[in-house]
Design a protein around this nucleic acid. Sequence first.
DNA 1: TAGATTGTTAATCGATTAACAATC
DNA 2: TAGATTGTTAATCGATTAACAATC
Lengths: 217, 217
Amino acid sequence: MNNSKSVSIETIRRLPKYYDVIDMAVKQGVKNISTSVIAEHLNLEPILVRKDLEQTGAKGRPRVGFVAAELMDRIAGSLGWGSLNNIVLVGCGSLGSALLGYKGFSRAGFDIVAGFDVDKGKIGRTIHGKKILPVSKFKDLCLRMHIEVGIISTPAEHAQSVADLMAESGIKGVWNFTSAALKTSKDVIVHQEDMAASLVILIKKMNSMKKEGKGQE
Amino acid sequence: MNNSKSVSIETIRRLPKYYDVIDMAVKQGVKNISTSVIAEHLNLEPILVRKDLEQTGAKGRPRVGFVAAELMDRIAGSLGWGSLNNIVLVGCGSLGSALLGYKGFSRAGFDIVAGFDVDKGKIGRTIHGKKILPVSKFKDLCLRMHIEVGIISTPAEHAQSVADLMAESGIKGVWNFTSAALKTSKDVIVHQEDMAASLVILIKKMNSMKKEGKGQE
DNA sequence: TAGATTGTTAATCGATTAACAATC
DNA sequence: TAGATTGTTAATCGATTAACAATC
């Protein structure tokens, strides 16, 4: 219940990977797991994994490792996966639709309560079990449900007006999938998603591995 | 043509944001832009922006700032946006379809040459202008076109077998959108996409802002 | 000229890695 | 017991921030 021990952002990026590795091991009957085994799976240094796990408050036993089930709980707790977060999404095109159906959110306790769109052909329909509502109902629903996180997956040219609407609807965190550079007041956090940047990073890692000559030929 | 000056990963994450801000300014008639203006738009420290731009090799003028058009070229160059990269995608469900149509890739020089699926209902169709091919043709196409980057957007339970197929098809970089923890040989880089982790980071930033009392009340 | 903004060098900070004692 | 693995303390590394001289 007390998440006071703050976990660093890089650690947050790695913890879910540990979770997946442990989960896989547990499904194969493993009861205890050591940092070196987790590190091996992910090509990381064992000491880095140990440091990350330390941040979750998990305790292991020398010679034995960590109790896998307990460790998963600790990771989930540190990531805030316990508490339920309601979020909303505006723009139910192909990307928005995919996000409405994204499986990974539920594990982490995120629930997209509804999708919003201006297209009358979509309004009233259901996508991946999520109701599509008209944007005109956005503010009311957000205020009523005290929703603080919103996803923008509209065409880029509408992103700013959606961001403005979100701000006046009490949203404090905006996850922007468009390439528009949003102007918002300082008390609203904008998280800019850039898939192309992710790809650039992947390619950079590939290139640096080639240079290091780690590859086979 | 010479990308030898290596740009750090955190800088790669920020450069596209600078690009978008500059692009927006240019469209409003701006010719020169200073680091403080860019920083202001993104709530960053000017010195951080200056350091990042330094890595691109761009030169500015005291009192004047940077020539906007030139700066955009430098950023694009540093991100490797000049060169064309062909990539492939396996799993044309809702997320895969969205990625096939993702606008942001083309700016960065990425082109998904085809989508692959096992569903006969999808094979032969075209999604967002991309042809859907049977997985049986995957290896042949990748080898023929010397493709090195592949996206996995299948159900999680098929991710490992797709990863194996990619490895034997010459793919060196895998972008995994499923939650499966992939086992690959060490000369294949796996970039694990975790949208839920991104959301956790956003929420963490929101909370830390609340604590700092930067918000309005 | 005066002053804003760059470019550069140094200081700080935090994350990663290393070393090693504790312990099961 | 012997040895593997944790927990902890210290060293290193790189990224961010600060300070300030150079310059347009």
